[in-house]
Nucleic acid binder design. Structure first.
Length: 685
DNA sequence: ATCCCTCGAGTTCA
DNA sequence: CTCGAGGGAT
């Protein structure tokens, strides 16, 4: 049986060890033991404390949870006001800020040249203040209005990243670079940001949903909501994180960077990406770096904080309004913005599909101005309940494609109009039909100009005839001038036809003719794709060419024969079969052949070293284009797909990979870099 | 009948 | 990238 004295010693030992583990994990970011080991130590501590309740101290890790729910939060007066920051959105504003400061203080430029700036990632959470007395965490509070906040000590104690006890000493402070003797005060105050990682945020929202509670809009709200919980047990479950960013108490620090050093040595986690910058050029570089890399961080940041490193300067620069002059928030270009749906228009595709598109009041999102966003189809509009006149949140899906993320319904005035799919084609006035059970409404007029025009674009597009330099504008001109009646006429164009047109130099006329003529030789797969048969895309065209080997055979194939092709079912077989029974289509093919198109039939199959393997590409390859790589794989009998799944054999990763990389990572798909890929195909060919 | 993977088709901006 | 839907596997 353990004596009380033995228990006391063991408890001290356990507390020390658990805090060491906490420090390694949260401050050094280098875990030394597994979670299970930590849990086990914590469990032992808890048992001992249960047996000897009078040995429980307020800095024991078991005291992080277990507080009683409060009725309300007490108000806390901040000894030093918690200020806010001025925002800057451009490089220019940052330089203006420096300019203003240098005019304010004579020695500003000299001191900044000496000590530089300190740049930090601006965490998207909520600011809190932590007060320690005689090393013990005694009070934590929110910012509130800057002067008076709320006492959330119990809740902050549940955050493991926050130390419950600190042991400041002269030795420690000197280790951080402070020179000379410093009297260490009893009371020490540190400020920082409480935030929630994306992963925790998603988990919390899943639970909210399960419990039938409203979801949090973003990690910031979730963190704020969790801190303002009256029941600390709820906060404990939310797994909040914390980074310290300011040492309020005077411990001899001369620069902001030194303050960070001291806080870290005291046991507070500070963001490891914070960085000293010699000048604003370096600050701007830091900003640019994180503007693009912030996506790879496990938490949200909306900018950086730039701090004049010399603390004396900050003090003397003073405060304007509620913001100190010595620091500024340099925001990242927003990834999300709100704007107004000015109209919903309808576009007509190659197959007659009517696609509603939101016309937006132009707004800057993630570096580019967006003015339109697809709404996909009628059902999608209903689901999101987007109306003309609505204020909406837009963002970019996969960094490129603008998307209406949600509607701010609170902002409705009642004047918003509900979108109705037109019953007549907006381009040709033809009949619009939406077959039962299908999501897409189509203009059924085969002669519709919009459809016809899209067919041209498809014909000249890269995976089809790949006629470079033949964009929509030039094509439209050719059609308007009556130079071409269908895409086959393109091959009969001469310089003499084009040159007289307005704004056509001789040179560009001859370039276009050359580009067209150089495409007369084409593979069977590309040719089939270019025809624009419904439900036949790149992949199916390739399958068809491979299976039948010649245009003649495909033309004459029966429905059953087509359906026998792997990956082709009744629906696709029907549209292929019907296509080759249509008189106009057959004439079109005849005209193409008469114009001198030479179809190259697929080579007889040779060795198939990659058969059964599926490749997916992401990012840019250095030594060959995506198309060349695809052909290489197919030539060796491998399959190429556009999306990663567990059936993917290899993901070939080039420069600047996209989201496929993450997916492959979670699915455990094997990755190849370019060199490995080349080795693989090279060795086996 | 149902699930999962692919494919097709449409889309934005610099 | 997104959605819808075709096709094969279960």
């Amino acid at each position: 049986m353990l004596t009380k004295q033995q228990a006391k010693e063991r408890i001290e030992q356990l507390k020390k060890e658990i805090d060491k583990i906490r420090y390694a994990y949260h401050v050094l970011d280098k875990p030394i033991v597994s979670d299970a080991v930590k849990d086990s130590l914590q469990h032992e501590l808890q048992e001992l404390e249960q047996r000897f309740p009078d040995l429980i101290t307020p800095d024991s890790p078991t005291q992080r949870v277990g507080g009683k729910p409060l009725d309300e939060f007490q108000k806390v007066q901040h000894a030093v006001p918690m200020l806010s920051l001025t925002d800057a959105f451009s490089e220019e504003e940052i330089f203006d800020w420096q300019e203003r400061n240098s005019k304010l203080l004579e020695d500003f430029t000299q001191k900044v040249t000496q000590d530089g700036y300190y740049a930090e990632l601006k965490m998207d959470g909520l600011a809190v203040s932590l007060v320690y007395e005689d090393g013990l965490f005694v009070q934590g509070s929110t910012r509130g209005n800057g002067l008076v906040g709320e006492d959330v000590t119990q809740n902050l104690k549940t955050i493991e990243a926050i130390p419950l006890r600190i042991t400041p000493s002269l030795e420690l402070i000197q280790k951080a670079g402070v020179k000379g003797a410093v009297k260490i005060p009893r009371r020490i105050e540190v400020r920082g940001e409480v935030f929630m990682t994306m992963k925790v945020f998603e988990g919390v929202n899943q639970e909210q949903e399960k419990a039938g509670l409203p979801k949090f809009a973003n990690p910031r709200n979730a963190a704020a909501g969790s801190i303002r919980q009256l029941d600390p047990n709820v906060t404990a479950r939310r797994k909040l994180s914390f980074y310290a960013y300011d040492l309020v108490t005077e411990l001899g620090q001369k620069t902001h960077q030194q303050a960070h050093e001291i806080m870290k040595l005291l046991g507070f986690p500070v963001n490891p990406h914070n960085q000293h910058c010699a000048n604003l050029t370096e600050v701007v570089r830091y900003h640019q770096k994180w503007a693009s890399e912030r996506r790879n961080l496990p938490y949200w940041t909306d900018g950086i904080v730039v701090v004049v490193n010399n603390l004396d300067l900050i003090r003397r620069l003073g405060v304007v309004g509620k913001a100190p002059r010595g620091m500024i928030a340099f925001k990242f270009p927003p990834e999300e913005a709100t704007t107004v749906v000015e109209d919903i228009i309808v576009q007509v595709g190659r197959t007659g599909a009517l696609t509603p598109v939101a016309v937006l009041r132009p707004v800057l999102v993630a570096g580019s101005t967006i003015s339109r966003a697809t709404l996909h189809n009628e059902d999608e509009i209903r689901r999101k309940d987007v109306r003309i006149g609505d204020t909406v949140v837009v963002h970019k899906a996969g960094d490129v494609i603008p998307e209406v993320a949600s509607v701010l319904k609170e902002m409705r005035t009642g004047k918003e109009k509900i979108f109705q799919m037109p019953t007549r084609c907006p381009v040709c006035g033809g009949v619009v039909i939406r077959p039962a059970g299908e999501a897409i409404a189509r203009c059924v007029n085969k002669k519709c100009f919009a459809q016809n025009f899209r067919r041209y674009l498809h014909f000249v597009s890269r995976p089809a005839f790949d006629m470079v330099g033949l964009g929509p504008k030039i094509l439209k001109k050719f059609i308007d001038e009556g130079l071409v009646k269908d895409p086959a006429d393109l091959f009969n164009l001469t310089e003499g036809d084009i040159a007289p047109l307005e704004r056509f130099a001789e040179k560009s006329a001859s370039n276009i003719v050359k580009a067209i003529q150089s495409r007369k030789h084409i593979s069977l797969a590309r040719f089939l794709y270019a025809l624009g048969i419904q439900n036949v895309g790149e992949e199916t065209a390739y399958d068809l060419a491979d299976h039948f080997g010649s245009l003649e055979k495909i033309k004459n194939a029966s429905l059953e024969e087509i359906e026998a092709v792997y990956d082709i079912g009744p629906v696709v077989a029907r549209s292929i079969y019907d296509f080759f029974r249509d008189k106009n289509n057959l004439q079109f093919i005849e005209r193409l052949l008469k114009a001198g198109i030479k179809i190259e039939e697929p080579p007889k199959k040779q060795a198939q070293p990659l058969s059964g393997l599926t490749f997916v590409f992401t990012g840019e390859l250095a030594s060959l284009t995506r198309d060349e790589a695809k052909n290489l794989v197919r030539g060796l009998g491998g399959d190429v797909s556009e999306s990663v799944s567990k059936k993917t054999s290899y993901l070939v990763v080039g420069a600047n990979p996209g989201s496929k990389y993450d997916k492959a990572h979670t699915l455990g798909v094997r990755l190849l870099n370019e060199a490995d890929f080349l080795k693989l195909v090279g060795k086996r060919s």
